[in-house]
Amino acid sequence: MKTFDYVRAASVEEAAEAYAARPGARYLGGGTNLVDLMKLGVERPAALVDLTRLPLDAVEELPDGSLRVGAMVRNSDLAALPAVRDRWPALSQAVLAGASGQLRNAATTGGNLLQRTRCPYFQDVTKPCNKREPGSGCGAREGVHRDHAVLGHSAQCVATHPSDMAVALAALDARVELYGVEGTREVAAADFHRLPGDRPDLDTEIRPGEIVTGVVLPASTAGRPSAYRKARDRASYAFALASVAAVVRVESGVVAQAGIAFGALAHRPWRARRAEGALVGAAPTDDAFEHAVDLELAAAEPLRDNAYKVPLARALALDVLTRLTASART
């Protein structure tokens, strides 16, 4: 890790200015991924602008029934919020399915969104990786890639996004609030992360110097049945092999609303729009679920050693959809 300048900002505005004034700066949140990557030499910031004491740790009920969660709210606190547990349970479940108690106590909502892939080639600076070093090649595509993408990957990059939380946010139609020197803006959580294409170095739609200031959980999914399920190599403290978050509302015997997102299948949480389209208006039957999920996963292009992810994701999705609609089906 090379030495760096350290700045503690008093306000979001000041933080953005400090960042702009220091070439090579990075923002510091909980640090659970950034400091890890700095030790590995993957991140080499010239300066850190510490955001952890910004007043971004509030949770507010907004008048329209949505909930605004500040970017510095720690993962463990987010998962424990009664409002989240009661109204967006998939989000609480997703956060609690990730990392460990210690890491969740440090990791922030904003930082969780911005964490980088755990692709072993990305983490090893002695190996080629187009994400870390554009143009250097991809070690994973023909290498060890059991954990890698089956959807939306490119010739350049087959990495997956590691977050559990982001998968739930994508399914729940959450929005990400951003602040930059050009002002504030919102991006749908489902659109916040990118597919790699020919720019795998860009994980998200965030612009240089922008700060994630919060996440808004919308009224449209509040109180709807939602859940998150994840499969992994050990019972706890492991990244997903595949996961799914879903929110489903059944009215008058048909699916009136559906939000489904897959984790660990792609470079971003994979919002299953095709499956949702097939489900809405259909009766919540096994056949309908299978048809919808298969429609979505038909796009999968597994690599040599990760074809298992497709049936695993399928099984997880069917299980979650079935459970969420159990009362409407009986």
């Binding site: 350290y6 640090g31 400091v35 463990s76 460990s100």
Partner: peptide, 15 residues
């Protein structure tokens, strides 16, 4: 009062 991994916390940020 909260448990954390001290290996990932930059001490300067804990002033």
């Amino acid at each position: 009062g909260r448990r954390v991994n001290s290996c990932l916390l930059l001490a300067v940020s804990l002033d």
